[in-house]
Simulated scan of single mutants.
Amino acid sequence: MGGSVRRRYVALGDSFTEGVGDRNPNLPNGVRGWADRVAEKLAKHEKGWEYANLAIRSKRLRQIIDEQLEPAVALKPTLVTLYAGGNDILDLGTDMDRLLEEYSGLVGRLAETGATLVLFTGYDVKVNPLLEPLRRRNWQYNARVRELAREHQAVLVDYWCFDEYNDKRMWDTDRLHMSTAGHKFLARQVLAHLGVPTTFKPRDWEPIAPRNTREWVAAQREWMNDWVVPLIGRKLRGVTLGDYLLPRWPEPVKVPRKGGLRRYALEHPEVLEGRALLG
């Protein structure tokens, strides 16, 4: 990448790439995320990096293809990251053969740009035995991602095998999205795969204190009330948290080498206008 005169990073996807779980009210959509962190480190490593992030939470693969693919190609990126399809896997009626066919087409189209392409497997979330079919879908998805990475000589970030995410502190309170610590760790992994040095260090946590039965039940009840019940309600109504959100960085911004995107947002308050601070 170092020999390229133009350095432009474009991120596509859903909440994973938008940055949900890594809250920051001073940035678009109220989040930061691993992709912002990667863009900032790229800018510190080499002058002139530009960054666009088209990802929006809750988007399904078909929406990402329809709404993000052509804008991304038009930006003529030199680096592209893609994670898409995770929300489809959680939808009970998803046809996996069709999903993987469409995902393959999306990857192929992005590979044609000539940009360095980064793909991600999905994390192997430990689910209730009743939801074991969803876990098997994730394995099927991951196998295809690995095949496509080899086929297109893409960079593969094998998120599935990161044991660090077995620690619940790497996850936000909804248990579906990474916490700030999780986003930092993933940013470090992406940069390492790209050969970019970083000073990110993993958290040195104390062991988690065991909970008694009452505390465990209280935590489960809080999670159900705060996250699961609202999620089911949205599914029944056919709405998502991303319905009225715009991409966080729809046009390439030149990332400041000092202060990063937080500095950019302070100097360009218009990027926050009309945006919901969610997540």
Rank of each mutant, 00 (worst) to 15 (best):
N166E: 12
H177S: 10
C161M: 06
E70W: 01
Q220P: 00
K41D: 13
L61I: 14
D226L: 09
A43N: 10
E50F: 02
A11F: 00
R175V: 00
R237M: 04
E215G: 11
R32Q: 07
E222W: 03
T180L: 05
D95H: 00
V228S: 01
L277W: 09
A11V: 14
H268K: 14
N142G: 09
V125Y: 08
E102Q: 15
L75Q: 15
L134N: 03
A11C: 09
A181P: 00
W227A: 07
P230L: 06
L245T: 12
Q63A: 05
P197S: 11
Q63H: 00
G182Q: 03
Y51H: 06
H183E: 00
V38A: 13
E132N: 10
D158P: 01
E151Q: 11
T113H: 04
L231P: 00
R8F: 04
P25I: 11
R57L: 01
R234W: 07
R7V: 09
A219W: 05
F185K: 11
P25Y: 11
G48D: 10
L241D: 05
Y103L: 15
P247E: 02
E18H: 02
M96L: 12
R137T: 03
W205Q: 03
G274Q: 02
W34T: 12
L194R: 09
A115Y: 04
L69I: 08
L130V: 13
Y123G: 07
V217R: 14
G259V: 03
L231S: 13
N53V: 08
W34E: 11
A143P: 00
P252S: 05
Q63K: 02
G108A: 11
E267P: 03
K168T: 13
V196D: 10
L119T: 07
Q153S: 13
G33S: 12
H45I: 01
Y264Q: 02
D167R: 07
R136S: 12
L90M: 15
E251L: 04
R144P: 01
Y159K: 01
D172A: 15
Y141S: 05
E132Q: 10
R150H: 10
L130H: 04
S104Y: 04
S15G: 06
R62S: 14
G195K: 09
R146A: 12
L191T: 02
A154R: 01
D158C: 01
M224A: 13
D36I: 05
R57M: 01
V255D: 03
L12S: 06
V31E: 02
P250W: 02
R214N: 00
L277Q: 15
A43P: 07
T199H: 07
N166F: 03
R7F: 07
W171A: 06
A111K: 15
E270S: 11
A74G: 02
E101G: 12
N142T: 09
T240F: 04
I64C: 05
D66A: 15
L130C: 01
L42V: 09
F120W: 04
P230A: 07
P230M: 06
H177L: 08
T78F: 01
R248V: 00
G86R: 08
D14I: 07
R62Q: 13
T113V: 05
R144Q: 14
R37Q: 12
A218M: 13
E18Y: 03
V73D: 12
L54V: 04
A43S: 15
Q220K: 07
Y244S: 10
